[in-house]
Amino acid sequence: MKRTGYLYDLRYLLHDTGPYHPECAERLQAIHRGIETGGLLPLVKEISAVKADMRWIEAVHEPGYIRRFEELCLSGHRTFDFPDNQMCPETYEIAFLAAGGVIEAVRRVMAGEIDNAFCVVRPPGHHAEVNQAMGFCYFNNIAIAARYLQEEWGVARIGIFDFDVHHGNGTQHVFEQDPTVFYYSCHEHPTFAFPGTGRSFEKGVGPGLGTTRNWPVLPGQGDDEYRKLIETDLWPAFDAFKPEVVLVSCGFDAHEEDDMSDIRLTTAGYSYVMEQIVAIAEKYAGGRIVSVLEGGYCLARLPELARNHVQILLGKDIPA
């Protein structure tokens, strides 16, 4: 059995997005319930949130953006940049805890204290641009973690696999010119889904040409399409790139019962996807995976999806 870190913190529940918002605290509670009732809590290494050092936030975001976020948030504004981005006065602080928690999980993996980790954080991050909040995201947690890996641990090749049903525009834009970070995203086709980027012709820019890949999935597609993209596209891409660490933008919103998308990935399909990522990480990255929660809004299905996710990270020989 692997030593799997599990980042969960009650303070993440305090990010209040107001009534009827899909990105709500109940999502995290549902995920935690799944881990708990699945009997996995005694098996994982629990991690508490740590506030991120400003240095790491600034490794991705412009200082002016961070100040604007702080000012608007602390002065009681309920939205930031887009009406989608609902916040409360605590949001700024909690965004630091989300990014910092992921950094802490990455640190433990790199220090050899744990093998891999699942970070159940809010607010999510992969839509956040260098200077703009977008799609419920403020700080780009996964991009910040990748910068931390580069600068603090000197990791030369980082593979990011983003299976949230929406394209991670923020992450792509941060790394599109960086040949040392491979950003691979599969998501509902941008003509039919937010945010409208992630078309197959977006393959990176300048020196980063070739280390960005997008596989848009048409509405109604599911397990078969994901199997195809992983076997015929993701594996060859990562076989060639050989990531030293694998980061995962984990969105459960491609599930067939999640009404944020028209994609029909089943619970079993999600397990298949994660098993393949684990296999890639085993082959190239010494098993080092840090999975970071992005979307996933079907409260009824989140417990089982998260439980399977952690079970796959724990791997074989889980005590009954």
Partner: peptide, 26 residues
Amino acid sequence: LLTNNVVRVKQKLKALGFELLDPMEW
């Protein structure tokens, strides 16, 4: 729509009797 969050508005439109076309039939 300049939003990620269309779940509720879709439900509302359906409740008003509008038909939301299957995206593959657009």
